[in-house]
Design a protein around this nucleic acid. Structure first.
Lengths: 211, 211
DNA sequence: GCGGGCGCTATTGTCGACAATCGACAGTCG
DNA sequence: CGACTGTCGATTGTCGACAATAGCGCCCGC
């Protein structure tokens, strides 16, 4: 296989497969046969197996015990569910951030939004998704809650899939993405936890907070 | 080797090691050598490896790349961090539960608290921990948010470790456990999200909610 | 006596082979 | 004609061996 020798073999395979899934080169429902992948990438089946296990923990792949693995198909309910979980985690992080003041975050986040605007104008889907991940990752990291951040990061891949799917089905427009993030930064700068929570909820679920 | 043929071999090994860690038969800092465990349990090293990987994702074990694995040592900060993450997840679940009404939960949860009281009087630490897990698991499951529940369940083992550690160092008394849970049930029955959130926060972090 | 380099050992990373299991298909019996 | 069962192929579960590497102690030179 190519120069996949960056870190560990399973890691490389994992990243490669994740990219393929997110690019829809491996559409939802595709059967992933360990031996076939191993042969194609010229690595051992154990290595592929490890990679598949990680993909499963990321929610991109489902492994049926004695059968085969398939690329996860996200139903509408799954998307709602994933977004809600992501919202809960991020809101928990944001509350911790606001307790210390979020002033330091405004500048770096604003810069990310600007880059996102640029990417959105260029129609660069992948870049927008990456910047979205970076934006929320940065925000959550500021809470200094390692376990929360880890759980949050574990959903990155799934959220990438959700975004691509939402954009594809036109529930969301690439051009709206920067604005949604700008709203978040503004709410953060305001410093009121309730406002931020409401904004976040709309950010993820795009409906009013019913509580 | 015992009758570890219930589900899959890695699963059995995983459960066995988890039990040993939580019972402090494998104290924090213990080196876990794959070959040694494989020899003792009479399984292959790959099997042990898989189990260790799962333990790592549960936060009970740390795997240093080309070195060896050790049983995680939880610092005071780690404990706070874990409790906060757990709180955030459960609070997110509870808000979803309250949106539908929590009336159905009061009876089953009360029953679990009663069993917990019984176990606490008997001084049965393991039973109390299990009932605590069951209590919170039941509550979170009622939210019907599968991903949230999965993340929450992923922290069960770590919370078990936290509880044992807190009880050991007398930050917490076994006899207080049922009361803490009774308070939660009462707050739930009340139906006010803010009250429940505050109660939950105290439940996990035992200080007043500073926000 | 001390510091640096070198080889050894312990341990993990990767691999290919063998065994177990599941699904599908076909053949048979009612 | 339908349902049951035995067999076969495909795929994963488990294993033991080999390769690579990190840490450690020893030896040598200074």
């Amino acid at each position: 296989m190519p120069d996949l020798e960056h870190r560990s073999l399973p890691d490389s395979v994992h990243r490669l497969l994740r990219t393929r899934i997110l690019n829809n080169e491996l559409p939802a429902g595709t059967r992933l046969v360990e031996m076939a992948i191993a042969a194609e990438l010229d690595v051992s089946r154990s290595t592929v197996r490890t990679a598949l296990t990680r993909l499963e923990s990321e929610g991109l792949v489902e492994i049926s015990p004695r059968r085969h693995s398939v690329v996860t198909r996200l139903s509408h309910d799954d998307i709602q569910d994933a977004c809600y979980a992501r919202y809960v985690l991020e809101e928990g992080a944001v509350r911790a951030v606001l307790a210390h003041g979020a002033a330091d975050l405004v500048d770096p986040l604003t810069e990310l939004v600007e880059r996102m605007e640029h990417a959105a104008r260029a129609g660069d889907l992948a870049a927008v998704v990456d910047l979205d991940t970076a934006f929320h990752g940065h925000l959550v990291a500021a809470a200094r809650k390692p376990r929360l951040a880890k759980l949050f990061a574990g959903m990155d891949a799934q959220m990438g899939a959700v975004m691509r799917s939402s954009l594809e089905e036109q529930h969301l427009d690439l051009a709206d993405m920067p604005g949604l993030h700008r709203d978040l930064v503004a709410a953060l700068a305001g410093g009121d936890p309730t406002t931020v929570a409401t904004t976040l909820y709309r950010h993820y679920l795009r409906e009013d907070y019913v509580l």
